[in-house]
Design a protein around this nucleic acid. Structure first.
Length: 525
RNA sequence: GGCCCGUUCGUCUAGGGGUUAGGACAUCUCCCUUUCACGGAGGAAACGCGGGUUCGAUUCCCGCACGGGCUACCA
């Protein structure tokens, strides 16, 4: 019988979840869904020193926002394998560490970190690198070199000790990676990794292997940074007697910084001005703030789409996917081997594609709440007496829908709407100086005074009427439309660029247009 | 330093023993548009180097170079 697909995402709560982490979670999720399997969120908080309050909740919130919902795990309901937080599983790991010692695959080591540091220095002085391995362990303080009584005494005296894996000498360890094929490492290159720390917590290696076994994980899909320790994990499965149910491995290529080389880091985002985190984050200790894709105005679907293509690609040219399509198309075999440089420029295009998929009404709702928020936080300021209709307009769905219709093609993000559309809610107080200097003269002034009067006479303030009236007046005044047209927009909204001119005039409405023209003529006189 | 992994346009990538090496972002030109954008058409742009194997290699093999990862009582 085929074994049930069960995968896990296992971050440590040491800070906000990096977008690379989100991609790892995504690939796990897609793989699980595709095979009707389970996706588990396990929190690997075995390092008490690096624990950051709020980080765990941040991870949960991020996955929720992305629509990557685990079947089991911290924050996502109890599954059959709880608890899913490693700090709550301490006793479990201890048992397996003891079993390894009993079976002769691990040993107690009593060397203090100062002593090891000393060793390291000495060896490095002679030109090579120190390694606690099957050679050096014979000269160090551990249960292999000390007498049985000495060991007993030390353990009874509650001396600090760690448990180390007894890596066998000169053996080829083979790891089969789904993405990279066979990776072979000789045990002479491996060191006797600490499995159990002196603070009573397991290290990643032990906890990871034990939990993956107990939680019946079928595939370990994780970042490439784990590839070097995969042979160690294989050894652990063997020594624990679990080789026959060892999960398959897939080590994902890394996300690289956009310029230069190296892993994508928070600093790159700060330096180049793009987020590397899904959500905003404030460091609880330093108070340092990091921006997130959500708050930058990205749709979660766009964010997912950006991430999934960084290291994976279907066999055709499709670039835009729903989650359902991704689940259908995804396969580990089509994941690339090499790292992907992250291009913040392309993310804008993706978001625009998703913006296009939304209806005017959906966008209007987003726009309205954005305006309300900006007003509340003081970003939007205006003179109440000059804009008495402001509150009415921003609450009017039909009106904002029409506004959205006129500007939606011009932006990548919904939070850019306001910059382009403020003119529909607030009258201008200043006018583009270039255009005024070039075009504003007596002739123009008389034209607009006349236009104001003509517009006042129109009953049906429609697109065709508005445009016709403008052009006829220009013709009868002996003016080429091109001479006065750029000015029209400036008089109405203060800016040289903006929404389609006559559409804007109609939406603003007869009364408002006349009012704004009068104000402009008075001010520019 | 040692070990491991990788290398197709600037970037993400498709492809794979014989192709005009395909797509997308960005960039450039033109069209549409009396603004800006959207849209449309087109252009420039890539198989790291050296050896093999082969009738033929960008594709397979080996070296080298370059890049990355790991080398903690961190994950």
């Amino acid at each position: 019988m085929e074994r049930k697909i069960r995968v896990r995402f296992a971050p440590s709560p040491t800070g906000p979840l990096h977008m690379g982490g989100v991609r790892t979670a995504l690939y796990n999720y897609l793989f699980a869904k595709k095979h009707n399997g389970d996706f588990i969120l396990r929190i690997e908080d075995t390092d008490q020193n690096r624990f950051v309050p709020g980080a765990e909740q941040y991870i949960i919130d991020s996955l929720r926002w992305c629509g990557i919902n685990p079947n089991e795990g911290v924050g996502f309901g109890d599954g059959a394998y709880k608890p899913y937080r490693q700090s709550e599983r301490k006793e479990i790991y201890k048992k397996y560490a003891e079993q390894l010692i009993k079976d002769g695959h691990a040993y107690y080591a009593f060397d203090s970190s100062e002593e090891l540091e000393e060793q390291r220095k000495n060896v490095e002085a002679s030109g090579s690198a120190f390694s606690y391995n099957n050679i050096s362990r014979l000269n160090l303080k551990n249960s292999l070199t000390l007498s049985e009584n000495e060991v007993k005494d030390k353990l009874n005296a509650n001396d600090h000790f760690v448990v180390r894996l007894k890596v066998p000498a000169n053996e080829e360890i083979r790891v089969k990676d789904i993405i990279r094929g066979w990776v072979v490492v000789n045990t002479m290159e491996m060191d006797d990794k600490v499995l159990f720390k002196s603070d009573g917590m397991p290290t990643y290696h032990l906890a990871n292997v034990v939990d993956d076994y107990l939680m019946k994980i079928s595939h370990v899909i994780r970042g490439e940074e784990w590839l070097p320790s995969a042979p160690l994990h294989v050894l652990l499965y063997r020594f624990l007697g679990w080789e026959d149910v060892m999960p398959e491995f897939a080590h994902l290529p890394l996300l690289l910084k956009p310029d230069g080389n190296g892993k994508l880091s928070k600093r790159d985002g700060d330096r180049l001005g793009f987020p590397v985190f899904p959500l905003n984050w404030t460091d609880p200790v330093t108070g340092e703030k990091s921006s997130g894709y959500r708050e930058m105005g990205y749709f979660p679907e766009a964010f997912i789409n950006i991430l999934v293509l960084l290291g994976w690609h279907p066999s055709n040219d499709q670039e835009l996917f729903t989650m359902e399509e991704l689940i259908k198309e995804f396969s580990l075999e089509r994941i690339n081997k090499s790292g992907a440089k992250f291009d913040p420029e392309k993310t804008k295009w993706f978001n625009q594609q998703y913006l296009k998929k939304h209806s005017d009404e959906e966008l209007a709702h987003i726009f309205i709440s954005d305006i309300k928020e900006k007003t509340k936080s003081g970003i939007i300021k205006f003179d109440n007496s000059e804009n008495p209709n402001f509150n009415f307009l921003i609450s009017n769905l039909d009106y904002t829908k029409e506004v959205v219709k006129l500007i939606r093609e011009k932006v990548h993000f919904t939070n850019e709407f306001w910059d382009l559309a403020s003119c529909f809610f607030i009258a201008p107080v200043s006018y583009d100086e270039n255009i005024i200097a070039k075009r504003w003269n007596e002739k123009a002034k008389f034209f607009y005074i006349a236009l104001k009067e003509e517009y006042a006479l129109i009953d049906q303030f429609s697109l065709s009427e508005v445009e016709k009236t403008f052009k006829q007046l220009a013709e009868s005044s002996g003016i080429k439309p091109g001479e006065v047209m750029p000015l029209f927009r400036v008089l109405l909204i203060g800016l040289a660029n903006g929404p389609a001119l006559f559409e804007m005039v109609v939406l603003l409405g007869k009364e408002e247009v006349i009012k704004r023209l009068s104000a402009a003529i008075t001010r520019l006189n």
